[in-house]
């Protein structure tokens, strides 16, 4: 099967620091891949390059066989690549419903379809009761759920989720996990960045571990987490 996403030799430097070094991997349609690694390992930088928020110095990225290196985020969004950020990004002065409608209308849904889709998502994510509140008035967890929902106003071909479970209540974590499991069962493709290892183990059949900008290990999650290099990257000298 040809890959949905193909990352080939991607490199990004910030001055003298090599944030992402010659990273190569493929993601097949319908995969749910965990992207793990210690802080500063290059996960978010790689996601920024994949979603068009940063340019790379070397390498190519293909989405469904078509080159998409250097495309702007809005063009990638229209090609079905959606991104959730580590630090929540929502439209704080717009109400919750309008936050969702922005993506729906921008991605080509008509007003009626967008409304129906937004309301269904709000119900599924259990934040329908705050749909008329300004998004800036929500709790941190509700904001995360809202941003998560924004990625699914049109079924994406690939969803890049950066730390969706960070600093949220277990109930909300469960709502998101259930959503991801259900969509994955329907064939949706995900890349999930998280430091929450139990969640990675539970959700992701495959994981890629990065360290110092490089891919340290790529394979079945249980094997990746058992690899000595991965253990050492996470625990440093203590593992030796």
């Amino acid at each position: 099967m040809s890959p949905l996403l193909s990352v080939q030799g991607v490199t990004k430097r910030f001055g003298g620091l090599v944030a992402v070094a010659d990273v190569t991997f493929d993601i097949a349609p319908g995969e749910l891949v965990g992207l793990i690694g210690p802080n500063g390992s290059g996960k978010t930088t790689l996601l920024n390059i994949m979603s068009g928020h940063l340019s790379s110095e070397q390498g190519t990225i293909r989405l469904d066989g078509e080159p998409c290196t250097g495309l702007k985020p809005q063009r990638l969004a229209r090609r079905g690549l959606m991104r959730m950020f580590q630090l929540t990004r929502i439209f704080a002065r717009m109400n919750v419903l309008d936050n969702l409608l922005v993506g729906g209308r921008a991605l080509g849904l008509d007003a009626e379809e967008a409304n129906a889709r937004a309301n269904a998502l709000l119900e599924e994510l259990q934040i329908a009761h705050v749909r008329h509140l300004d998004a800036g008035q929500l709790s941190g967890g509700q904001m995360k759920l809202l941003e998560f929902g924004c990625c699914f106003m049109r079924t994406p071909r690939l969803a890049l989720l950066d730390e969706p479970f960070a600093a949220i209540h277990p109930t909300m974590k469960e709502i998101m996990s259930r959503f991801i499991r259900a969509r994955h069962a329907e064939g949706q493709t995900f890349v999930l960045v998280s430091h929450d290892m139990p969640v990675i183990v539970e959700l992701c059949p495959r994981s890629i571990c990065m360290n110092a900008g490089r891919v340290l290990s790529d394979g079945a999650t249980s094997q990746v987490l058992a690899a000595p290099a991965v253990i050492e990257a996470y625990l440093g000298g203590a593992a030796a």
Binding site: Q74, I90, A106
Partner: peptide, 24 residues
């Protein structure tokens, strides 16, 4: 109109608006 929705989204967060597919 939907233009108003997009303009307000750009005002609140240009990066999030681009992520949502708005032609900034």
């Amino acid at each position: 109109s939907q233009a108003g929705l997009f303009l307000e989204a750009i005002r609140d967060d240009e990066i999030a608006a681009a992520r949502s597919g708005v032609r900034i």
